[in-house]
Every structure is written in structure tokens, then in C-alpha cells.
Design a protein around this nucleic acid. Structure first.
Lengths: 229, 229
DNA sequence: AGTGGAAACTTACCACTGGAAACATGCAAG
DNA sequence: CTTGCATGTTTCCAGTGGTAAGTTTCCACT
């Protein structure tokens, strides 16, 4: 059963990536009136959340931006929760792709962990709409299969990285616990960063950057994982 | 100027703590109809958010629970943002008090950091309404003076703890960066925990508990802070 | 004591929201 | 060509936040 699900999920991922290309409005999938309304609604949602935050989200405003009536989204996503869950899935999928691309080929555990961390916070900052939906909205369905699978795919990259740390640094490492800690720290940084005055987003200041914090965390993490004996 | 502000804030803190006592409806502050409506609205908000999550919050429902008309809150808090900011302030203040109580008297850096971490996640789990408002709602005014001061008071405890780590473990430690990392990890754990299947809330299972994760983080953090040379 | 004013609250209204139901439209397969 | 169905639209409903105007209660001052 799992391979089948995995297969579906692969297909879904590719489909999402294509859908995300907004300008592409051509001969593909033009099944009906609106080239690809689900994708248009997702991007409209992400943009709206980016502009006004998760609380500024409104099904009607999204529909308005997509140029359809306010009842159209219901036909594809059921309700607001369905649409937001779909956006969250897209976000997880994008994150998983980015983590995959950033970590493949890196054989040094420390380097790879740093690459994952940097990629995580950069992706979160690059897709504030998606991550806002994922972590600041309680209106998504956590049990949705596609969403769960996409998030697990992202988690798997981190997990394999921590396994590499275990293999290279400390054979007794509790991989799940440490992977959880790493994810928690990265997500905490993303949530906390805008609230902290001494953290800057760009590099052109004397302040700490998120990349700096990630690097410091990586160093501390690797050093802290070494066997104590 | 700062001492004055600090004084005001101290007073506000004490007031909030008294207000929080729900059953207390007696002869204090009974300035008008409703013994102490602001406090009642705050607790109603916290309960509502605990039950239905931040997105389930509704000014009218809160007013209904407090037994007043839907326009009454506006008189005390201006709008929904004002009320939520007040709840966030109360949450930060509670956290600061808890961190203070848990860490005073502990002289060993590792022990104290662990106490802070445990207290953080336990407080977050004990006040899900307040923490939900703080970290999952973008409808609070981050620049509010009282809120800022309360959060800074909580941060200060953590900061002094990290300074203790610096003094006892590594004189070259970047205190601000490490304090940020610790806070981020704790908050990340709180946000992530309910989403992770292998983390349990109570201790009566074979799964990891949040306390376990905090302890593992503390050990790793202290070890990782040691000078590399 | 009583009166003016301010504070606390209510009522009435507005534009907006999400969701459901009934209706219309266009494609695709028989 | 026509039947079926996915895709939208229109219309309606209860509920929401915010504002403005009115009402009640308290307090301070004379």
C-alpha cells in the first residue's frame, strides 16, 4: 500500500509544481472556463496571507482576486479549511524539494545539517504565505493525506541528515529526538525572528542574521552531539 | 524614564495576577456594573481560544460569555487587537513569573537552563489560550508597551541564565544568539509537539515527553557550548 | 443635596464573512 | 444530439467586527 500512496504523492508533487507556475496558462489542463482555478486560488491565498497575515485571509477576497464568484472555491476545496490545507501541502512540498536539492551530494554531516537549516529558514522567508498558513493558522486539516505525506517527505530529509550525524559523530544518538529538536529550532527561529530586534533579515547590517543563527546552531548541535565519555 | 516605566509595569503585573483570579468577584475595584470586565474578557478569551483555537476567537462570543453586549469590549480595549494584545501581555507576564520562580536560587547553569526550559513548555501547555494568542494570532499589537515589557521580562530570565552558562562554561559565548536559539527551540517544541506523533503530552506512555526533549536539548546545548579548543 | 460630566454599557446599524441551496453553463461521452 | 456532470453563478442566511447614538450608573464638585 505504501508504494502506491508514495506514487500518488509523487505525481501530486509534480502537478503542484507545474500548477505553481502562474504565467503558464497554456494548452494544458484547460478543462473548463478558468484554465486552472485550484492553482490560481492557492497562489491568491498565498499572496493574500503574505500581504495581510493569516488573519487577513478571506475566502471571498481570494475568489475576488482569482476573478471568480465567492462560491467557486467551495467546488474545488469544499471550504476554507480545504483550500488552506492545499496551500499548506504545497508549502510542505516546496520545502521538501528545497531540502532535497540542498542536501543531496553533501556527505559531511555538519555541512549537510547546516545546508538543511539554511534552506529551511530561507524557504520559510521566501514563502511567508505558505508557512503562515502552515504554522499560524489552525484552520488546516492536519490529517489530510496529501498534507501529511508532503510534511513527512520534508521531515525525512532532516531525519536522514541526523542519521548521518549519528553515523559520523555519535552512534548512540537518538535520531528522532534530535530531528525534532532541529525542526523545532528552525521553526522557532522563523516565528521568533520578526519579533526580535537584534535579528535582521538581510545581511547588510551589523545585526545577527538568520543564517548566522543557523550556523551557530549547527556548530553547537554537532559539538553537543559528541559522546561525553 | 526607564525606572518609571518599569514601575508602572510592576504595578500592571500585580494587577493582572489579581485579575486572573476568576472566582474573586468581591469588593475590589467594583467600579461599575461588572465587577471587573476587562479581566473577565481576558479569561473568556483565553478559554475560548483554548477550546476552539485562535481562529475560533470571536469578539461577540467572548462578550456573550462575559455576559455583556458585543460592543462592551470596545470600550476597554478599542478593538479585537487590543483585547488579544492584553491577553498576550497576561501570558508573557505569567511566563515571566513562572520562569523567575523556577530559576531563582539555582546556581548551576545546566540545572537552571533545564528548569527554564521545562517551565517554558509546561507554562505553554498550561496556558494554551494565552500562548495561542501570542504565537498563532497575528492580530496582536507587537509594539504595545505593556506587552513588550512583559515579554522582555521573560526574555531577561533566559538571558541571565545564558549569561550563567557563559560564566561557567565558555566565556566567549554569544549570549544573545544563544538565548534566541533556546527560546526558539522551546517555542518550536511547543508548536511542533501536537503535530508530532512520537511526542506524548503525559508521562504515562513509552513515547518521548516534552520534558525529555527539553532535557536532551539542555544536555546537548551545554555540551555544545564548551570551547572547542 | 444636587447637578454636571464622564465612564460603562446597550441598541441599532453597516459592510463584510463563510456556507448552503438553487440555478445556469459548457464540455465530453454515449 | 442529448444526457450527465463538473464548473461556476446567484441568492440567501446567520454570524462577525466596528461605529454611532442613546442610556444608565457613578463620581466629583459645589
Amino acid at each position: 500500500m505504501f508504494p502506491v500512496v508514495s506514487f500518488h504523492w509523487q505525481v501530486a508533487t509534480v502537478k503542484i509544481d507545474l500548477d505553481t507556475v502562474k504565467s503558464y496558462d497554456g494548452e494544458m489542463q484547460k478543462t473548463y472556463h478558468h484554465g486552472d482555478l485550484p492553482a490560481a486560488l492557492r497562489t491568491a491565498t498565498a499572496e493574500l496571507v503574505t500581504e495581510k497575515g493569516p488573519s487577513g485571509f478571506s475566502l471571498r477576497e481570494v475568489a475576488r482576486r482569482a476573478g471568480v464568484s465567492h462560491a467557486a472555491p467551495a467546488h474545488h476545496f469544499g471550504d476554507a479549511e480545504g483550500l488552506l490545507t492545499s496551500v499548506a501541502t504545497e508549502g510542505f512540498s516546496t520545502l521538501a524539494d528545497a531540502l532535497d536539492a540542498a542536501s543531496t551530494g553533501i556527505t559531511d554531516a555538519r555541512e549537510r545539517l547546516n545546508a538543511c537549516g539554511t534552506t529551511y529558514v530561507r524557504t520559510a522567508l521566501a514563502y511567508p504565505g505558505h508557512f503562515g498558513v502552515i504554522f499560524q493558522s489552525d484552520l488546516i486539516n492536519e490529517d489530510d493525506d496529501a498534507c501529511l505525506l508532503a510534511s513527512m517527505r520534508a521531515y525525512a530529509v532532516l531525519q536522514s541528515t541526523i542519521e548521518m550525524v549519528r553515523d559520523q559523530v555519535n552512534p548512540d544518538l537518538d535520531v528522532d529526538a534530535m530531528a525534532t529538536l532541529c525542526w523545532a529550532t528552525m521553526q522557532g527561529l522563523v516565528v521568533l525572528a520578526p519579533k526580535l530586534s537584534h535579528v535582521a533579515e538581510s545581511t547588510d547590517t551589523a545585526l545577527l542574521t538568520l543564517d548566522d543563527l543557523v550556523a551557530q546552531f549547527t556548530d553547537m548541535f554537532i559539538a553537543g552531539c559528541r559522546p561525553s565519555s
